[in-house]
Write a protein that binds this DNA or RNA. Structure first.
Lengths: 145, 145
DNA sequence: ACAATATAGTTCGACGACGAACAAATGCAA
DNA sequence: TTGCATTTGTTCGTCGTCGAACTATATTGT
């Protein structure tokens, strides 16, 4: 009656994701959602000037969700849009200075939010686990239609 | 400019959760949501005759979400409700035979859905990873207000 | 016993994400 | 070139989850 190991793993993953997301959501400044933070983070780390679809694919949301997120970020002045000079359909997303500042602040908040658990999971633990998770992620990504 | 290891871990977790959830959602029979499946699964594994709040806490959703989920399950005849004889406010949730059958079918579907990734992640991999994740989950759970 | 507080379940309004469908622009094929 | 399929970003309708607020019942403190 016990679960296959992969189920147990996905179950843990699901609960961790939920707890971490809720925790971060509450810690972030009023109105800045986790989805916004993820996009800001992505743009800082991978470079801005990317199209909506490209960002959407990278952070695993559908295009309408990204339209919504980017509109919120633009309304907050954290992001600026320009038409793609090479593709009349596309828009390119650029970070504003305010966007970079907000991201930096959010990272600090996020670090503080997860700090309490750092004592229970060591760096070595994490690094032993990461390769497997990356492989799992890659496999799931590949298996996606 | 690189992430703290714990961030990288949570990032992988978040993506894996998203991919796995989407994949399962599409594989499940029409109208049976992942949230429904999670509840059925919980009742089979941990025993039925539990209250809504208790189930809600176990599967990490808020009470209104559980009210909604249980109402859907009841409408489908997968679950039956009885007043708690020891607490006039409470309702106890019981699985119906149809509910157990639906769960069994859903488990088979879920197993088939994740089968393609089994080749990339061995049982040994999973078991090496599980203890760390459980510790992380417990830490996050404890740190929750 | 009785008032104050907490808890179970629900309803409500807001919000984010999804799939479907659309217009505009691009790419490909004959 | 012209016609068809693809892609980009958007809008729309639906749905699930959340927090706040409410009723009814329990529990606690005095």
């Amino acid at each position: 009656m016990s679960d296959p190991p992969l189920f147990a793993l996905l179950n843990e993953v699901s609960i961790i994701e939920h707890l971490a997301r809720n925790r971060l959501e509450r810690a972030l400044p009023e109105g800045l959602r986790v989805s916004h933070f993820v996009v800001l983070n992505h743009l800082v780390r991978m470079g801005d000037g990317r199209s909506l679809v490209r960002i959407a694919r990278a952070v695993q949301v559908e295009r309408p969700a990204m339209t919504n997120t980017i509109q919120k970020l633009e309304a907050r002045g954290l992001v600026r849009l320009e038409p793609d000079p090479r593709d009349g359909r596309g828009k390119l997303v650029f970070l504003t200075p305010a966007g970079r500042a907000a991201r930096q602040e959010a990272v600090a908040i996020a670090e503080a939010a997860v700090a309490p658990v750092a004592g229970d999971v060591s760096i070595a633990d994490i690094e032993s686990v990461l390769p497997v998770l990356r492989r799992l992620r890659a496999a799931l990504d590949r298996a996606r239609d």
